[in-house]
Computed example of a mutant assay.
Amino acid sequence: MTVREIPEAKIYFDVGANDGRTSLPMAGNPDWVVYAFEPTPELADHLRSRARACNNYHVIQKAVSNKAGTAKFKIAGQGDWGTSSLLDFNDNIDTTWHGRTDFKVTNEIDVEIITLKDFCIENNITRIDHLHTDVQGMDYEVLLGLEELIDRVQGGDIECSRNHDVKLYKNERFVFNDVALGLYENGFVIDAINPNDDHGNLCSPESRLSDANELSIWYRRR
């Protein structure tokens, strides 16, 4: 697949695009070119349908990690389908995510996995103005897959578990301390850290970082 950039437009990578709530608002905006990576067939079809009239919005129906290949993708087809992952759910989620009903695998499919380094080289992308990463337990692997091309990233936001005790997925390697240090070592500064939940439940304005299982880190190149 080769896609053509719009001259002078900024580049937005939406990795784990889900239903497009993050990137679809930019569909049709000539200031941006969006690459939405989403391996779930139903969600990828939804994105294509919503953005079919926009030549700046490209759907890539593949998973992204630090190594190319193929793997089983576990689809959790409940709620907003937002907890589907290459990883299995952890054994302690009934305790750490009490009351959640969407942590159930409803289907498994074979997916192709690519790296952002290969994608950038193939499509001659020399700058990523914003990298949104929400791939359920393997977000930092997406950055690692850029290798030396991580210098092309100007900023973004990334999700991670607060620590290993509350992580949602088995074999989830990188939690907040790892991700924050990795961002610093790769020349980024952190602008904000926000809770994604409150003891596994929905956030409120009073939610605290120390009570969240997952965090969102907003960063930019220093």
Rank of each mutant, 00 (worst) to 15 (best):
T40M: 06
N56D: 07
C54N: 14
I109M: 05
K74D: 09
K62S: 14
T96W: 08
T106V: 04
N201W: 12
N194C: 08
I193H: 04
R220Y: 15
L181T: 13
D211I: 01
D197C: 07
T115C: 03
N90C: 07
E214T: 02
I109V: 11
C54T: 07
N107H: 15
D157H: 14
I125S: 03
K170S: 11
G77H: 00
G155W: 11
T101L: 14
V15W: 06
V34Y: 07
Y169K: 07
I109Y: 04
K62E: 12
E122V: 05
K104I: 13
E38V: 00
S84A: 09
K167G: 10
Y184H: 13
V64T: 05
H58F: 13
A71K: 01
K74H: 15
G145Q: 03
A192V: 10
Y140T: 08
L131K: 03
D14A: 08
L144G: 07
M26T: 03
D118Y: 05
E108K: 09
V33Y: 03
R162W: 12
L215N: 01
S23W: 04
W97S: 00
I217L: 12
E38L: 02
D157A: 11
G77Q: 01
G99I: 06
N124C: 10
N194S: 11
N213F: 03
R4A: 11
A63V: 05
T106N: 09
H132N: 14
A53P: 02
A63L: 07
H98S: 15
N29D: 15
D45C: 02
V135H: 08
L143T: 07
V189M: 10
Y184I: 12
T83V: 15
I158R: 05
R4L: 12
S210K: 14
L43C: 02
P7V: 00
R221M: 11
E185R: 15
V64G: 01
L116R: 03
R100I: 10
S23E: 04
R4H: 10
E122W: 06
E214N: 12
N92L: 13
V175W: 06
T101I: 13
A44L: 01
H130P: 08
T126K: 12
